[in-house]
């Protein structure tokens, strides 16, 4: 301990003398998070037990790393892991690009009425549940007489079994998710765009920069922090792909690329409510998330020179 302090010895930071109030301001969040998130962390030990609700955490049998061993040795777990990652990264990439592009484009619309109407409408798909959408997609993507395939036939293509072919399934899942969320997701970027100082644009206009140049040199750099924050936080969620969507659309034909961690855990749970196993999987996902978020943080710092926290 002593050596560490001597090595790291720096000049003492002199803080404002009323900075103790900052702790006061921080305390509600710390207390609430401690009570409602940290105290229940005790439940994580279930991952190392064979938990039975009636025995409780103190009474259930300890099994050590058994649940994790089971998880990693399970024949399908590797496939399911890669499926999750594949769908997730595709969603992340196309989702971010489309959301950002939309935000930039809608921001260019000068007609006030059109702008507000479009902005309101694009939020709407976010509220459609996948149970409802599942029914609609089954209908319009029907391989024999669905709307989409009728259209394909008209322009001379063979009908496609979108939900029954592994590759098309992934495409359908990614595309429908992008469609559903791009409008809602754009709100964050719109807020960031609204925060840009108009004086910057005025100056650029005086210099004779066109809209494209203004976007490139003012708009984008101004919202880089927001992009970095959103991307970093999304990357941490990479193993949570959206159970509801997959669950409502998948079927045995597309287990190959469509079966994800969450649907797998769901089917495991159907056999008998295995709390310990699902806790173990959850813990594994959280640890992966932690590494991902730290990685993303570093990358954001290196690439954009911005520390998000």
């Amino acid at each position: 301990m002593n050596t560490a302090t001597t090595i790291k010895k720096k000049e003492k930071i002199v803080r404002r003398k009323d900075n103790w109030q900052l702790y006061l301001m921080l305390s509600p969040a710390v207390v609430l998070a401690f009570i409602f998130v940290y105290i229940p962390f005790g439940g994580i030990v279930m991952a190392f037990q064979d938990y039975k609700p009636y025995l409780g955490i103190s009474g259930s049998k300890w099994v050590g790393w058994e649940q994790f061993k089971f998880m990693f040795e399970y024949p399908d777990s590797v496939q399911v892991f890669w499926n999750t990652l594949r769908i997730s990264l595709l969603k992340l990439f196309f989702g971010t690009v489309s959301t950002l592009t939309f935000a930039l484009l809608i921001n260019e619309v000068r007609k006030k009425f059109l702008r507000s109407a479009v902005q309101t409408f694009v939020f709407l798909p976010h509220f459609l549940s996948w149970v409802v959408l599942g029914g609609i997609f089954l209908e319009i993507l029907d391989p024999t007489n669905g709307l989409v395939n009728e259209a394909l036939k008209v322009i001379g293509f063979d009908p496609i079994f979108f939900l029954g072919d592994n590759n098309w399934f992934v495409i359908t899942v990614v595309a429908s998710d992008v469609w559903k969320e791009f409008g809602y997701g754009s709100i964050v970027f719109l807020a960031a765009l609204a925060g840009i100082n108009p004086a910057l644009y005025e100056a650029a206009q005086l210099d004779g920069a066109g809209r494209w140049k203004q976007t490139l040199h003012i708009t984008l750099p101004s919202i880089v922090p927001t992009i970095a924050v959103v991307l970093t936080l999304s990357i941490s969620q990479v193993l949570n792909v959206g159970f509801d969507q997959i669950f409502n659309l998948y079927n045995p034909l597309v287990y190959g690329k469509g079966d994800i961690i969450d649907t797998f855990v769901y089917r495991m749970g159907l056999v008998d409510g295995n709390y310990s196993f699902s806790t173990a999987v959850g813990l594994f996902k959280s640890v992966v998330s932690l590494f991902l978020i730290l990685g993303a943080y570093r990358i954001a710092y290196k690439v954009a020179g911005y520390k998000i926290f």
């Binding site: 900075n19 998130v37 940290y38 994580i44 941490s236 709390y275």
Partner: peptide, 27 residues
Amino acid sequence: RDGIAGYKGFVGFFIVAMLFNGGMIPT
């Protein structure tokens, strides 16, 4: 200078709170 001592600790505290959870039963 403008902030608080233990900043990194608090950030870690919140990040962990975001990523981990104890599950339904303990909560």
